[in-house]
């Protein structure tokens, strides 16, 4: 009965409401397939259990107070059957769900980068050319987009239902997700992690545009400075340049070309210099000191905000790119 009832609700509901949100990214239809498989599986087993319960309850209902039921022996093969078959099905679902997750865990190398900073209760988004948006994100159609995200205060979570992507946005570190939009239009994004009074108002829209339109939008919204040039300015303003410049005597780490490379830490461990490493090297320089340098660097914790940090990191990344290009020439 329950499943008839529920199925009834689901069917009636489907006449009035969609059963899934718009599927507007490359992974959305793949997630939906698995979802519908699981839904069918759930309905089937609920039906099955209830069919048995109904049949037994009717067929073997108590007919008199003194009736003595017939003996039933426990069958080990039966016990094994209903242990092993569900185990096999669970294994299948596990592999299906995990392989999909694993395949989508890494953004493609050619992804367009966007930086996201969440704070109570708004989203700041920034494109590499410096274009900034609040609670809106313009992206081109059919281009992979990678979001590098962090928070100014508590934990937030960036969720785009139409793209089937979600990831927590944490203070003090970077997390990232990526998607490739497959439909034009605007799709809501929401904060999914309870973050205070106006948590439910912390939403915005992803606007998917044709690549040409997007290029136009990006050009018209470009500020005078790209992220890396803003970062370069900060680099000299904050006095970073006085130690970390090209011609220093080897007393301080050289930053050119360091991005993406491995370094050895003072405790002997190896670490790859990525956004997260650079972030903690700036705000918390003594947590993972690089081997071979004795002078400690002052912390910039609380002196620059997350947006400025992202600018600085963008600048340090260009230092690397410049040297690599030079090396190729």
């Amino acid at each position: 009965m329950i499943q008839v009832f529920n199925f009834g609700i689901a069917t009636a509901a489907s006449l009035f409401f969609p059963l899934h949100p718009p599927a507007a990214s490359t992974i959305a239809p793949q997630v939906d397939y698995l979802y519908y498989f699981l839904t069918a599986f759930t309905l089937f087993f609920t039906f099955l259990i209830f069919a048995f319960i109904f049949y037994f309850m009717v067929k073997y209902r108590r007919r008199s107070e003194d009736e003595v039921p017939e003996e039933v022996k426990v069958s080990i093969p039966l016990e094994l059957t209903w242990t092993l078959i569900p185990t096999a099905i669970c294994a299948l679902i596990f592999f299906w769900g995990s392989s999909l997750f694993f395949r989508n865990a890494r953004p493609p190398a050619n992804s367009m980068e966007v930086f996201v900073v969440g704070k109570q209760w708004m989203w700041q988004l920034q494109h590499a050319n410096g274009a900034r948006e609040i609670n809106e994100l313009h992206v081109p159609l059919n281009v992979p987009v990678k979001l590098t995200m962090t928070s100014e205060d508590v934990i937030h979570d960036f969720f785009v239902p139409a793209f089937r992507v979600k990831e927590d946005v944490l203070p003090g570190r970077y997390t990232s997700i990526w998607f490739q939009a497959t439909k034009l239009g605007s799709f809501m994004f929401e904060c999914a992690q309870m973050c205070g009074a106006f948590h439910s108002s912390m939403h915005g829209e992803v606007i998917v545009m044709k690549p040409d339109d997007f290029a136009h939008w990006l050009a018209t919204n470009a500020p005078s400075q790209t992220m890396s040039s803003a970062g370069g300015q900060l680099f000299s303003q904050l006095g970073c340049a006085s130690c970390h410049q090209e011609d220093s005597s080897g007393k301080y780490p050289q930053l050119a070309g360091i991005y993406g490379h491995q370094v050895t830490l003072r405790n002997g461990a190896r670490a790859t210099v990525d956004e997260g490493f650079l972030r903690s090297a700036i705000v918390n320089p003594n947590s993972e000191p690089v081997a071979g340098y004795s002078v400690s660097m002052p912390s910039f914790q609380g002196q620059i905000n997350e947006v400025q940090l992202l600018d600085l990191i963008a600048y340090i990344k260009t230092l690397g790119a410049a040297r690599k290009e030079a090396a190729i020439q």
């Binding site: 979802y35 679902i93 995990s98 999909l100 997750f101 239902p161």
Partner: peptide, 13 residues
């Protein structure tokens, strides 16, 4: 089981 499978949980979490 929906919530135990990784890629569905990402959406449903």
């Amino acid at each position: 089981l929906f919530l135990a499978s990784l890629s569905i949980d990402v959406h449903l979490h």
